[in-house]
Amino acid sequence: MKYNTVIIGGGLTGLVSGIQLQEQGQRVCIISFGQTLLHFSSGSFSGEESNTDVQALLKNAGIATVAGGYRLTPLGELRPAALTLEGYYHSETAELKEKSFAIVRLPKYLGLPIEFLQDTLTAQGREVSIITPDEVVGCPAEVILVPACKAGYDLKKTYGKRVSLIAALPPSIPGQHIHAKLQQYFQKIGGTYINGDKVVRSTLQTDEKGVRVQSVETQNLGDELIVADHYILASGSFQSEGLQSNYDHVWEPVFGVDTNAPEDRTAWTALDFFEDQPYQHIGVLTDEAGHALVEGRPVSNLYPAGHILGALRTDIQNLNDALRIAKNL
């Protein structure tokens, strides 16, 4: 199978770069193993600066967002967000604008710590009540919060702008929506999305011009060679198995891209759990032009992007990189 670009990883970074490339007229194939970090999405894209290109691309795919401002965490705190899905509670300033809140308690649903949320909002001087779904009609509160679960989305459908969604425990419904929309759109514009499959082999070719990726092979497609001019490595960090580790070392399993992991294993973690954890900064290495380094040599057609460069990167950093890489291919 021949493509202009093969993207390994079907999460946010992979899909957005895939859509951009496909719209530029390329033939793109995304290979995705298992679901992605989007399934932990809060309904917002993290980062401080929004990007109009990203927002426009999301909109084309059917994902409407509000730029800038703050999202409300399930624990009742405002955090800066680059983009927030329409329909979610969103504040333009770092302080809650409204005086009164109601939180809807859904029967049998435990995915939102409602009393905790009530306490933190009350501590911020707000009047907070807990109501049942039937009490939405006639509720005097300025803001009515419903957890972003399936039943919460049904309420949102019924009551529209009168209720606002708030992120709940994963698996994330907004994340699933974002993922499904991006995936559908990518396929609609002609992209090939291989789901639930793993790249198990890659072939690098070395000649006088340097090193390049020749082909990759996957678990499900067997001896099928997947060949492309360019490869984007957007396979994520440790949780998505874009990076793997054992007791001795950290490695990137598909191409063996070099990483910045310290040799001393004890330097990977900080003893205090709440400290900044060094392993979250571990990522693969690239040259200045963004080519992956394998055994210190740049691979001329392999571009790492997204969390494989470091787990703490924000969504917007990843998205901007995805667009930048795609536009240069």
């Binding site: 194939c29 002609g190 090939t192 291989i194 789901n195 639930g196 499959d197 499900n220």
Partner: peptide
């Protein structure tokens, strides 16, 4: 078919 991961072949033909 999803578990086989082979819809890529069908779509390649249909397209």
């Amino acid at each position: 078919m999803a578990r086989l991961g082979w819809n890529v072949y069908t779509l390649n033909i249909l397209r």
